[in-house]
Amino acid sequence: METLMKILVELRPDVDFEENKELVDSGELDSFDIVSLVGELCDAYDIEVGAEDIVPENFNSVEAIMALVERLQED
């Protein structure tokens, strides 16, 4: 979780990732942020994120992003 928080804060220092649970639905993260974030996640966790994984539910909160990472690590 620490690595993820570090990536997120570096990507968007202006966003409150701990409190905001609607990162995509509220428009806080846009498609450019998502692509940059995915690039970082792939490098940091050695996972492959496909276009099919890019749904708001997977990126709306830190917990959801972490769950996605864990699921992809298991696959």
Binding site: S31, I34, V35, V38, V49, G50, A51, I54
Partner: peptide
């Protein structure tokens, strides 16, 4: 269907 599949 275009942007995400391409950029990822």
């Amino acid at each position: 269907y275009v942007f995400y599949p391409l950029s990822l």
